[in-house]
Design a protein around this nucleic acid. Structure first.
Length: 113
DNA sequence: AAGGTGACAGTTT
DNA sequence: TAAACTGCCACCT
C-alpha cells in the first residue's frame, strides 16, 4: 500500500478545493496554512499528482506568489490553465493573473471565520 | 542508502 | 531597482 504518502497530498488537495471560484491562491499561502512544515515547494509538488486525484483539484487556481502560472506546463495544455482561469472570471495577462492581489484568496481567511 | 530534483518564497548582494 | 542565492522538505532514481 503505497498510498501512505498521500497523507500530505490529501491535505493540500483539500485546501486547493476550498479555493472559491474566481479566486486564486499561492503555494506559500497553502503551505503556511498547513503549518509551513513542508514549504511552498512541497505544495507544488503535491499538485503534480493532483491530476490523478478525485475530485478534480483546481490546481489552475493555485499560482505562485507573483501570480504567475508557473504550473501551466503541467496541465494537459499550457493554454488550458489560462483558459480555465478565464472561465472562472479571472483575467490572465502574459501568463500572469491580473489583479492577482485582488483575487488572491488565503486559506487562513476561510478558516479564520 | 544517498543524492538530486522541484508547480516556491524570502533574504541578501 | 533588479538579479542571484539559499532555505524548505518530501518525492524519485
Amino acid at each position: 500500500m503505497q498510498n501512505k504518502q498521500q497523507d500530505f497530498f490529501q491535505d493540500v488537495y483539500e485546501v486547493a478545493r476550498l479555493i472559491p471560484k474566481g479566486r486564486v491562491s499561492s503555494y506559500g499561502a497553502i503551505a503556511k496554512y498547513l503549518g509551513a512544515v513542508s514549504g511552498a515547494r512541497m505544495v507544488g509538488y503535491a499538485m503534480n499528482a493532483a491530476h490523478q486525484q478525485i475530485p478534480s483539484v483546481p490546481a489552475h487556481r493555485v499560482v505562485n506568489r507573483n501570480g504567475l502560472l508557473t504550473g501551466k506546463h503541467h496541465f494537459g495544455s499550457e493554454s488550458e490553465m489560462q483558459a480555465r482561469l478565464e472561465l472562472e472570471g479571472i483575467i490572465i495577462e502574459n501568463d500572469q493573473v491580473k489583479d492577482f492581489k485582488n483575487l488572491f484568496w488565503d486559506p487562513s481567511l476561510a478558516l479564520a471565520l
